[in-house]
Design a protein around this nucleic acid. Sequence first.
DNA 1: CTTTACGTTGACGTCAACGTCAAGCACTGC
DNA 2: GCAGTGCTTGACGTTGACGTCAACGTAAAG
Lengths: 141, 141
Amino acid sequence: MTSERTWTIAELADELGVTHRTLRHYEQLGLLSPERRGPQRVYRRGDRVRLELILRGRRLGFGLAEIGRIIGMYDEQPGEVGQLRYLLQRVAEQRAQLQQRRHDIDAALAELVEVERRCLADLRQLAGEPAARQPGQERDR
Amino acid sequence: MTSERTWTIAELADELGVTHRTLRHYEQLGLLSPERRGPQRVYRRGDRVRLELILRGRRLGFGLAEIGRIIGMYDEQPGEVGQLRYLLQRVAEQRAQLQQRRHDIDAALAELVEVERRCLADLRQLAGEPAARQPGQERDR
DNA sequence: CTTTACGTTGACGTCAACGTCAAGCACTGC
DNA sequence: GCAGTGCTTGACGTTGACGTCAACGTAAAG
């Protein structure tokens, strides 16, 4: 009953839109470590979750090394007080970085909205005043 | 009176935290095109703004080619109807992508908060029960 | 007048993140 | 029994984004 769903390398790669080469690459870097059934890789739910985390980090523009450090934070053992303090500090740094990125995105979105506004204004301009050169030309196609 | 502030390559690079090599690289890719006073590059306010846009795009994880297309959208001429429609479409695509990134960031932030919570809980755990080995040790320093 | 500082153009090096063979094992179907 | 299909491990190639080095021009400072 507790027979978890597993994936072959091709299945997992397909589902998440990467190639098997990418998975092997991440494994070499220590970002993934699937089990082996003989020589074959067997990916379990946990591996899939990790991979999704990696891909999200990639979309956010982090390098694989930094991604490794980030997801390392998620599954770190309690450990001793010093380690916990250190981890908390890294979490704070990471949060600051992500918030900076959020601001960047908001600024970029605001500018895009502005571009869009200008575009629409220009379109109305051209639609409202078709009284320029060559009147009856360039219709709606 | 209208003598704008200008920058040399080293000044601008220093101020924005990149190297002169980076600026020349961006120029080769057509992302920047400063004026020349003889053989020397002279960067004006507009160049600086463009560079800041480029760096923001970089922080967001875009490649330089895509960044070129993005900032190209900002200073595109009105042009004809077809171009305007095309531009609007690209703006929409770009917005969708940025919003996806926002969601990624929000998810990552939420998880970091969770890690932080667990950390603090563990710390309280260790502080509230110092009744283990070596009682009187490891004070607040 | 030479040094020093800052600028210039190539050209090649490097690092990350894969892509792309090549060669081989293991089971499945006919 | 052998031809596919899908997995495996190297090993080398590629692309993007610069770093680095060589060789040279120029303009102010001592």
